[in-house]
Nucleic acid binder design. Structure first.
Lengths: 240, 240
DNA sequence: GAAGCATATTTGTATGATTAATAAAACCCC
DNA sequence: GGGGTTTTATTAATCATACAAATATGCTTC
C-alpha cells in the first residue's frame, strides 16, 4: 500500500513526514487501521524518532492527532480538526474533488464576505481602498489577457477581507483562495468573467461611498453568482 | 523577570512549555527582544532540547513561530497566526481585556451565526433540532436558577452551529464560547437574560418551520442585542 | 569592488538510555 | 465467584550526546 507515499515536498524531513501523514489522516487512510506507533512510523519512513515525534506534535497542534502513553497515538474525530489551518485546508482539497465540500466552502464565503465588505465600507483606510482598487485593476487587465483572471479575482476578494480591519476576517484569505482555485477545477466552464468585473466594481464603489448596506448586497450578488455555477455543475454529479 | 512564569497547566513538560511560550508570544513579550534560541529556551526552562524542540514545532504548526538554521527561531507576523486555533484564541483572551477584540469577535459572530441559523433551517435533521431545543430548555431552566445561564446560552448557539450541517460553521464553537464567556467579564451587567429566552425561542421556531429567512433575522437580532451591550450605550448598530 | 572561500552559529537528525503513565492481565482475599 | 489490589507490559515522555546540514557574516583574493 505505497499508494500514499507521494513525493511530498518540504524543507526538511519533519515537514515531509508532516505532509504525507497529514494527507493520509485527512484522506481517511487510518479510518479503520490503527495509527502506527512512534517506532513504527520512524522505521516505516526511515527517519529518526526525533523527526517522528516532532511531526506528530505538529499534527497534534493542528488537532489531527492525540498521543498518550500506553494508548498510543490516535486520530482525533473530524470535529476536532482545525479546518482553518492552511495545511489542513489544503489536505482536504487534495483528496478527490467533492462538490459537497465546495458547496460548504461557498456557504462560508456567503456568510463572511458580504459582512466583510460592509465592515470595509465602514472602516477601510486609504491603504485598504487602494488594495481593493488594485485588485479591480488586475481583473480589468486580466480581461484583456494581461493578467491571470483567477489570481486577480482572488486578490480582489482578499483585499476586501483585509480592508475590513478585523483580523478574524482577514484570516479567511486562505479559505477564499482555495475555494476559488478549487471552483475552477470543478466548474471549469468559467470564462474570463466579463460580467464579473462590473459586479466587483460595484462593490468597490459602495465601499468608497461608505455605503455598508450596498456593499454587502453587491458582494452577496457576486458570491451567489458563483454558487449558482456550482449547483449547476452538480447536475452530472451527486446531489446531497 | 519571573513575571511570565505563571503556573501554566499541562499534561507534560512539552505542553507546559507550549502554554507559557505561546502566551508570551501572543502578549507581545517578544515584540522587541529577540526570540530565544533553542538552547536558551531549554536552559531557561530547565528542560531538555527535545522538549524545547517539540514545543517550538507545535507553535510553528499554529503559525506563531518560524525556525531556520543559522537565522534562529523568530516570531511570525500576527497576520500568520492561526486565530481560530483554540489555544491561540485562549491566549489572545488571557491578555488584559480589550474591548476592541471583543467587538471584532462579535462582528464575526454577526457574520457567521445568522447564516448558520439559515442553513439549519434548510438542512437540520432530527438530532440537530433536538440539540437546539435542548439548549433552549437549559436557558429556560437557568432562568429559574436550575442551570448556569452562560453555559446554557453557549450550548444553544453551539447547537445551531452544529445543526447547520457544515463543518466550517461548526468550527466556530470555540469562538462563540470564548466570545460569550469573555463578554460577561467586560459587560458584567448582563442579567439572566429574561428577554433573551424569547428571542432564542423565535430562532428555534423559525428553524422548525424551515423558514431560513426568518431564522437569519431572528439570530441577527440576538447578536445585535449583545453587540449593543458591548458598545455601551452607544447608538444602535449601522444596520438598515 | 566582486567573487569566492572560511567560519561560526543555529537548527536538523540520529541514537541510546531511562522514566512516567496506564490499560490490561494476574492475583488475592473474602 | 466477585471485588478490589497488585503486577506487568506497552507506549509515549524525557534526557543526554553526538554529528550533520544550512547559511549569514566576514575575510580573502584577484
Amino acid at each position: 500500500m505505497a499508494e500514499d507515499d507521494r513525493p511530498a515536498p518540504g524543507r526538511n524531513l519533519t515537514h515531509r513526514l508532516l505532509e504525507t501523514t497529514g494527507r493520509q489522516i485527512v484522506t481517511g487512510h487510518y479510518a479503520e487501521r490503527p495509527f502506527p506507533t512512534e517506532a513504527e512510523l520512524a522505521t516505516g519512513h526511515r527517519v529518526s524518532r526525533s523527526v517522528t515525534r516532532e511531526a506528530v506534535k505538529m499534527l497534534t497542534a493542528k488537532g489531527l492527532l492525540s498521543a498518550r502513553p500506553r494508548l498510543g497515538t490516535t486520530v482525533q474525530p473530524e470535529a476536532r480538526w482545525n479546518l482553518f489551518d492552511p495545511d489542513v485546508l489544503r489536505w482536504l482539497l487534495e483528496r478527490p474533488a467533492s462538490v459537497p465540500l465546495l458547496r460548504q466552502f461557498h456557504q462560508l464565503r456567503r456568510a463572511i464576505e458580504p459582512t466583510a465588505a460592509g465592515l470595509a465600507a465602514q472602516t477601510a483606510d486609504a491603504a485598504g481602498l487602494a488594495g481593493i482598487a488594485d485588485g479591480l485593476v488586475r481583473m480589468q487587465q486580466a480581461e484583456q489577457g494581461h493578467d491571470d483572471p483567477l489570481e486577480a479575482d482572488i486578490a480582489f476578494h482578499v483585499a476586501v477581507l483585509r480592508a475590513s480591519n478585523n483580523p478574524f476576517f482577514a484570516q479567511f484569505r486562505d479559505v477564499v483562495g482555495t475555494a476559488l482555485r478549487f471552483s475552477i477545477q470543478v466548474t471549469n466552464r468559467i470564462k474570463g468573467g466579463t460580467a464579473d468585473v462590473a459586479a466587483h466594481g460595484a462593490v468597490l464603489a459602495a465601499i468608497r461611498d461608505r455605503d455598508a448596506d450596498r456593499a454587502e448586497r453587491a458582494m452577496l450578488a457576486i458570491i451567489d453568482d458563483v454558487s449558482d455555477l456550482i449547483e449547476g455543475s452538480a447536475g452530472g454529479g451527486p446531489r446531497a
